[in-house]
Simulated assay, not measured.
Amino acid sequence: MTARTGLSWSRDRSRCAPGPRDGRTGPSFADATPEQVRATLIPEEAVEFDQRWREAMVEATQSLDLAGVLARLGEWRSIARRTAARGAEEHRALYWHAAVKLTGAELPPDMPLHKVKALLGL
């Protein structure tokens, strides 16, 4: 990434692509591409990203409106930023601790993330 332009050179595509910009707590992901966002996510959320991204693209194709795609990308950029700032294990733990607090239950520490997120209504 060049300091002057905020663009990173994409070697596999002879073009410049905007990338995550560094902020006080790490990359901001404000201009991150879907590919860059997905690469930052933990594997469980990358699968979810793929599914939701495809749904948004189908909706956009039918409606000819990119608002849903852009909104979805914004949501995932935020998740990628938090994941990058905390690291994968702390990111998973964040969901687990929230579910414990919300439910008041003792949850197994190895509970699959999709079950933890379901307890949170996510």
Results as ranks from 00 to 15, higher is better:
Pro20Gly: 13
Ser63Gly: 04
Glu48Leu: 14
Gly74Lys: 09
Thr5Trp: 05
Arg86Lys: 11
Ala39Val: 08
Ala85Thr: 13
Val37Cys: 05
Trp96Val: 09
Pro43Trp: 06
Arg4Ile: 08
Ser28Lys: 09
Glu45Asn: 04
Arg4Lys: 12
Arg4Tyr: 06
Glu90Leu: 15
Ser78Trp: 12
Arg82Leu: 13
Gln36Thr: 02
Tyr95Gly: 00
Leu7His: 11
Pro34Tyr: 00
Leu41Asn: 02
Pro109Ile: 09
Thr40His: 02
Ala56Cys: 10
Trp53Ala: 03
Leu119Val: 00
Thr33Trp: 04
Gly104Val: 11
Leu64Cys: 11
Arg81His: 03
Leu113Thr: 01
Gly26Asp: 04
Ser8Ala: 14
Ala85Glu: 14
Gly68Lys: 02
Leu73Asp: 03
Gln51Val: 14
Arg77His: 01
Ala99Tyr: 03
Gln62Lys: 14
His114Cys: 03
Lys115Cys: 03
Val69Tyr: 03
Ser78Asn: 12
Pro112Ala: 01
Leu122Val: 15
Gly6Phe: 04
Val37Ala: 05
Ala67Tyr: 04
Gln51Tyr: 09
Thr103Gly: 04
Cys16Ile: 11
Leu70Met: 11
Met57Arg: 14
Ser8Glu: 11
Pro20Tyr: 00
Pro20Arg: 02
Thr5Gly: 04
Ala32Gly: 05
Thr61Pro: 02
Asp22Gly: 08
Arg77Leu: 02
Ser28Trp: 06
Gly19Arg: 10
Ala60Phe: 12
Ala105Asn: 10
Asp22Ser: 11
Asp50Ser: 09
Ala71Val: 14
Thr61Arg: 14
Ala71Glu: 13
Asp31Asn: 08
Arg38Lys: 15
His91Asp: 01
Gly6Cys: 07
His114Thr: 07
Glu44Cys: 09
Ile79Leu: 12
Met57Phe: 07
Gly104His: 06
Arg38Tyr: 06
Gly6Met: 05
Phe29Pro: 02
Arg86Cys: 04
Trp9Cys: 06
Val69His: 02
Glu89Ser: 10
Gly74Trp: 08
Ala80Lys: 04
Leu113Gln: 01
Ala39Pro: 08
Glu59Gly: 03
Leu41Ile: 10
Asp12Cys: 03
Arg4Val: 10
Ala67Ile: 08
Glu90His: 11
Arg13Asp: 14
Ala84Ile: 05
Leu122Glu: 13
Leu7Thr: 08
Met1Lys: 12
Thr33Pro: 03
Ala56Leu: 10
Leu107His: 02
Pro18Ile: 06
Glu90Asp: 13
Gly6Asp: 02
Arg38Met: 12
His97Tyr: 09
Pro112Trp: 01
Ser10Ile: 15
Asp110Met: 00
Leu94His: 13
